[in-house]
Amino acid sequence: MAQQTTQERLTIQDLIESRHSVRKFVQETIPKEDIDRIFDLVRLSPSAWNLQPWRFHVVTDTDLKQKLQDAAYGQTQVTSAPAVILVTSDMEDVIRNFPETVHPGLSEEHKQTEIANLSSLFGGMSVEDRGQWGLTQTNIALGFLLVSLEGFGYSSVPMLGFDQEKVKEILGLSEHVKFAAMVPFGRADAEGYPHHRYELDKIVKYH
């Protein structure tokens, strides 16, 4: 399905218009090659200062998915999906690795100035505040992920209805990590609801 969709070269308009949440999936293994190609696109998401705080945890193990479903209050799409992505933000990891985010084309002096400025800015924030800042950036990558999945022929459903502390325990994640979403995905085995959205005059204001 992914190969077919790629060959069709759908436009971004096609992908956005066709994407909708699905909660029942075909029981088949998703090739790791497809997942890698999807994340090759997602990692191009923009972020302020290029800090890229997003981290993705892909779960395909049946037992782990069952634990995630339990943490998601029994929502069956979690185990119906062949794979589940936990979209997280880890600003503490970013802070430990500022040099990795600075553009290699900058002069050494400019690099060191950039690192010093970032260290001063985020070092003056609490762990919670910089975690929330990183989450706003990670939500950009979440949007890229949903459209990229659609582009490779996979349906998905972004979720926030789960016990975040239990999921951290299941995956061995640090307390400071923030969640943007849990995203079960695979080939659709049922139709989702058609789009029901506000009209433009509700959400767009011209000034």
Rank of each mutant, 00 (worst) to 15 (best):
L173S: 06
A188W: 14
I170K: 03
V183I: 09
F162A: 04
L160S: 13
F185N: 00
L149F: 05
M159N: 05
D163R: 11
T136Y: 12
V157H: 11
G153Q: 08
V183E: 04
H176K: 07
V167S: 05
S155H: 15
G161S: 13
E175R: 10
G186M: 14
K178F: 14
E165Q: 11
H176V: 09
Q164M: 12
V157C: 15
K166T: 07
A188Q: 12
M182D: 07
F152D: 05
Y154D: 05
T138F: 06
S174Q: 14
G151S: 07
F179Q: 05
S156K: 03
K166R: 13
G161K: 08
A180K: 05
G172D: 10
D189R: 12
V167L: 03
E150F: 10
G143T: 02
E150H: 08
D163W: 12
G161L: 11
D163V: 05
I140M: 07
D163K: 06
L171M: 11
A181M: 04
F144K: 06
G172F: 04
K168W: 10
I170T: 09
Q137R: 00
E165K: 12
Y154G: 04
A141F: 10
A190D: 15
V147I: 10
F152W: 10
S155E: 13
P184C: 09
G172V: 04
R187T: 15
A141G: 08
F179N: 00
M182A: 08
A180Q: 03
V157T: 14
V157L: 13
V167F: 08
E165P: 09
F152M: 01
D163I: 05
A190G: 14
K178P: 06
D189H: 15
S155W: 15
H176R: 07
M159G: 05
Q164K: 12
L149H: 00
L149D: 02
Y154P: 08
P158Q: 00
K178L: 09
E150T: 10
M182V: 02
F179V: 01
G143L: 02
N139G: 12
G186C: 13
I170A: 03
G153Y: 11
K178M: 12
P184E: 02
E165H: 14
L160E: 13
E175F: 13
E150W: 09
V183L: 09
G151R: 05
